[in-house]
Design a protein around this nucleic acid. Sequence first.
RNA 1: GCGGAUUUGGCGGAAUGGCAGACGCGCUAGACUUAGGAUCUAGUGUCAACGACGUGGAGGUUCAAGUCCUCUAAUCCGCACCA
Length: 816
Amino acid sequence: MNMPYSKEVDRKWQKIWEDSKLYKFNPKNVDKKLYVLEMFSYPSGSKLHVGHWYNYGLSDSWARMKRMQGYEIFQPMGFDAFGLPAENFAIKTGIHPHDSTMQNIETMEKQLKEMGATFDWDYEVITCLPEYYKWNQWLFLTLYKTGLAYRKEAPVNWCPKCNTVLANEQVVDGHCERCETDVTKKNLTQWFFKITDYAQELLDKLEDLDWPEKTKKIQTNWIGRSEGAEIEFKVADQDISFKVFTTRADTLMGVTYVVLAPENELVAKLTTEENKKAVAEYQDATKKITEIDRLSTTKEKTGVFTGSYAIHPINGQKVEIWIADYVLGSYGTGCVMAVPAHDERDFEFAEKYKLPINRVIKGKDGANDALPFGEYGILVNSGQFDGLTSEEGKIQLVEKLAEQNKGQLKINYRLRDWLVSRQRYWGTPIPVIHCEKCGAVPVPEKDLPVLLPYDVEFAPDGESPLKKSAEFMNVACPSCGGPGQREADTLDTFVCSSWYHLRYPDNKNKDQAFNTEWINKMLPVDKYIGGAEHAAMHLLYARFINKALRDAGYVNFDEPYTSLIHQGTILGPDGLRMSKSKGNVISPDVYIDEYGSDVFRMYLAFGFSYIEGGPWSDDGIKSMSRFANRVERIVERSKELAGITGKTEMGKEEKELNFVRHMAIKGVTKDAEIFQFNTSIAKLMELLNALYKYEADVENKNIALFQDAINDLLRLLSPFAPHFTEEMWEALGNKGSIFNEKWPVWDENAMIKDVVEIAIQVNGKVKGRMEIPTSAEQQEIEKMVMENDEVKDMLEGKQIAKIIVIKNRLVNIVVK
RNA sequence: GCGGAUUUGGCGGAAUGGCAGACGCGCUAGACUUAGGAUCUAGUGUCAACGACGUGGAGGUUCAAGUCCUCUAAUCCGCACCA
């Protein structure tokens, strides 16, 4: 007995699927594997929101289609379970992060199952459990061994009132998000991953990826390759020299001063006695300025003179050495040659502090070259280099410098090394022991995991929470056996998410993070689906880790994610991002209770362009319910006709129905392939409309055709409405899951019509229509059109210049 | 400031350079009905309506432009003193 579609139908089939293990990945079929991965989610306390349904529901539809097309789908799910929100929640409520996180995971698993997605839960990965983070620690050690993990001093955001380190997202307009205090900087020794070693490859390999162009562009900018030169300046009267990086070596002869970043190590040596006070004050002031203010382009430039002079590497002139916060310590060499005539920033600075401004470039062919003139031109006031173009000057000046070992061409990247230390509790402990004698010693692999202790005071008080657990901290040095202290910082959660796709297919492995031979068969991920907000960080980190593991011999492929899709964002009804504080959050639950999960899924598929997203509106969700009802009724009709022998001929109506049927198969197959679910559903509606039309118009039916078309409709619809179509499939008396059926294949021949209506244009404007046999060739079409009486009337007294015939579409007659 | 994307009926959204507005919502009229927030049928870009005009705006290429090119505006996103 079959029921009208509702939530109960969802539950019925979810149970059948689970009992029959329908969606278990079969490793024997690895040659047909398709690794479909949705970015795993953070186990938040609230229920699944519309975004989860939109992301996971629709990519599941895609996976279901691929399954029916014969792929062995590997579609795992897991949880990115470490991170700040659980820790903050704990500080507020006293509920331990582990307890709240595991509770949330349980709830989310249940809800994800109710969505009816084909996740294979046997391969679940939860990052906050030792069986995962043990291997996260292994990853750290592997990078350490290969020289890709290192320690150096780096500033953290520091709230002096809360006495704690703040993540960037906790700094709001330079203030602590909790207490509004001005945030300052504090230097700590922290761990970094050397992603910059891979800058060039990360850039080069982008080309081969099937990723959105926009995302590639974001990564390109993020890596920020720039070609220039490094030029050495000697300091007058001292045995010190420093290098500057410039992309405009052609302007070298216009250098009138040089600027160092205030935090540059050389500053102490270069500062003369009478300037010490001013320099020290300026350095202090820089430290207090928040990153955001310092990086603001609108801020007036400031700086102080160090008292020292540098020697121009070509003309030998003495130029002043300044420090200024518009020069960044972290980019290039942290030193800049200032050419005020040809750089806006230097110009502004030079005017303010009355530094000389020398023009060395003039515009080509009388271009407006008012100073500051930043464009390329012709070199002037540059001695032997006068008359060269900027392009030539860049090369020749550097060649000249190279002869004297004072300069060379150089490529710089904006990309910085990845800071992975976090002064937090709820994360993977960094597997390092600090020993007075031996320094930082990695924890031997056999001692992994370094367990995260449960009983820890993690309220913020200025220390990493783990530091307060004596039991955790005090340990023998693995190297000398003397007293040691564990590293108290934890790893950035982006480390967890940078390789989780490697753990999924081998998640039970107790001896290794993953088995290389197996992983080389299962990876790379064939289709990766997730939000565009991860375009820069997560996706770049994962690519880097993949390359690092490849070079260490653990994987044999270059890139983790071959093909990437970003789903759009469903906004609140007001067009703004949904958030509790704005009160515009839409809960899917109400709709699911009323209509069932499939109607909701179909509505998400139909109502939005998947890649765009858009503001939520439930106008039209009823139409999906109506659509399901209409399908139900046509299935009923099909059942009534069972056993009756109809005609077998293919008349006009039959051909028309068959045409729409095959158009739908082709359309849905092609559109869904590229995640165009809205047009896929539209084509199914057209097929349903055609079925109704046939049913109403034709007395003596070709029942076999009618029923075949309904079968196709159900199979095409099944990825979008899995529970509903299973129910319908069963109602028709079929045995077994519809998802074990083959995906329909279209027949091009069925899509050839006998006659087609084409448009008759005169000078590009539609003036009439004509029915033309599709078999007619260009010349025949032209003849038929030109002999038509109406066309003759239209062309009365006009001179025909040209006739354009586009087969099956139109004829355009160009007249004078 | 730099880079990228988007802009199509009342609405969500379709259109390999080839009949703009598929499909759906909404709306209008009708049918059925005790009833209708159900269902079915028909219609629905705009206007001064037998025609003309229509894809943010202005030019251009083409027999033909929503689609290609140039300029421009608005919105969104990314980067942001990167030497």
